[in-house]
Amino acid sequence: MSGTPPLIEERIFELLLEAEDAQFTIRSLRDQYAQRYGIAAKHHADLRRFIYERIKKLITAGLVEKGREKRKRDQLYFVLPSIREAGLCLEGESFESWHQRLVAPAPRETASTTVTSKEEGSCAQSKTARKAVSQLALEKELKETQSEFLSTLGEVEAFRELMDEYPDLKPNIVVDHRDAYDRSARLIGRVRALEKSLHRLGGT
């Protein structure tokens, strides 16, 4: 990552973490943002610009990557794993505030001073914001891992029942049963590690 981590709005950060397969387009991000936060259709063009400007900063910081395949429309972007540990300040200006300044800009000197002061105060609280985002990400991963563990456990039990019911089948599926058992053991270990991490995070 290059330079100081950029200031970013927490809403956009959360949407990036939720991006399917860690990929998105500016339009898809805009549509999700507009739907979730009730942005009227007449403001969608401005919202797209707002999001694009912030994605450019994340690209410069090495936290988002532009797809190699160039498209005239719906260019693909990829969220890089390093974004979770980047130490971003998540108190960036909201679209509503940005749009208000766009529609009715204040005198340049006053506006600049106000925004700078706000950003400095916001970054002072970024540690708390990062902690909250980390907790959210850990909770999400814990739920996914618990679900995968239960699924694998069901697979282990199914193989065991099949071997009991059909002894002739046992030589063919005993390896699959062992693999499923090993996976379930690894997953329960990860579940415990995530639970401990959440506990430690909550106690700091």
Rank of each mutant, 00 (worst) to 15 (best):
A193F: 05
E14D: 14
V191W: 07
P167E: 01
Y77Q: 02
E148L: 12
E148I: 12
K118G: 09
R186Q: 15
L194Y: 01
A19C: 03
R101T: 13
S94M: 10
S97C: 08
S184Y: 11
R108F: 08
V64G: 05
P171V: 04
K131H: 10
Y33L: 00
A158I: 01
D176W: 08
S112L: 03
R183T: 05
K127L: 12
L88A: 02
K127N: 12
S197Q: 06
Y52F: 12
Y166K: 08
T114M: 14
S2E: 08
G87P: 07
I12Y: 00
S134A: 11
E96F: 01
R108L: 10
R130P: 11
R49H: 10
K70D: 08
E10L: 02
A22W: 15
G202R: 07
R71E: 05
G62S: 09
T60I: 15
R36H: 05
S94F: 09
S117L: 12
R192Y: 03
A19L: 11
S126N: 00
L102V: 13
L58H: 02
R200P: 05
R108P: 00
Q32S: 02
L142F: 04
Q32A: 14
R49F: 12
R108N: 10
L138A: 03
A106R: 08
L136H: 12
K70V: 09
E109V: 09
R192W: 07
V115C: 03
R48E: 15
T145F: 09
A61Q: 03
T152I: 06
T110L: 12
A19N: 06
R183M: 15
A86Q: 03
E141Y: 03
